[in-house]
């Protein structure tokens, strides 16, 4: 996916919204900036599975580096339709292709209002530069 066309949360998740049968589906991952600042990732764990209802701001899992843990937050409310479990066995995907094969969950959006709170690419870049 082209990072410039994605939406971003303050907590560094990216969101790609696509039309699907019966509504919209959000694909969620974390940005290259997040992956880099976490340095060497060693573990990922998902706390949600397909079928779970989630609200914007809920955690859906966590990533760990050697000396840090970061929560992963749902940027929108919806129902989990897919979890990228295989990432756990190929964590290098997160640094190799954070915006593509590094996707983490797909959510069927039930409430689009949270989308309005997300940043576009330029705003997100600006935020990262300030950190």
């Amino acid at each position: 996916m082209n990072p410039q066309e994605l939406l971003y949360a303050e907590t560094h998740e990216w969101v790609a919204v696509a039309d699907a049968e019966g509504g919209k589906v959000a694909t969620v991952g974390i940005s290259d900036f997040a992956v880099e600042s976490l340095t060497d990732l060693v573990y990922i764990q998902f706390s949600k599975s397909a079928g779970d209802a989630v609200a914007a701001g809920d955690t859906f899992g966590e990533v760990e580096s050697v000396k840090a843990v970061s929560d992963l937050y749902c940027p929108v409310s919806g129902e989990v339709v897919a979890v990228h479990d295989k990432l756990a066995d190929k964590l290098e995907t997160l640094s190799d292709d954070p915006f593509g094969e590094g996707w983490m969950v797909k959510l069927k959006i039930t409430d689009e209002s949270a989308l309005a709170k997300l940043m576009d690419y330029d705003a997100y870049k600006k935020m990262c530069a300030e950190q």
Binding site: D40, V42, Y43, E64, V66, L91
Partner: peptide, 8 residues
Amino acid sequence: PDEVKAAR
């Protein structure tokens, strides 16, 4: 020591 290897 390679702590990343130890943890992964």
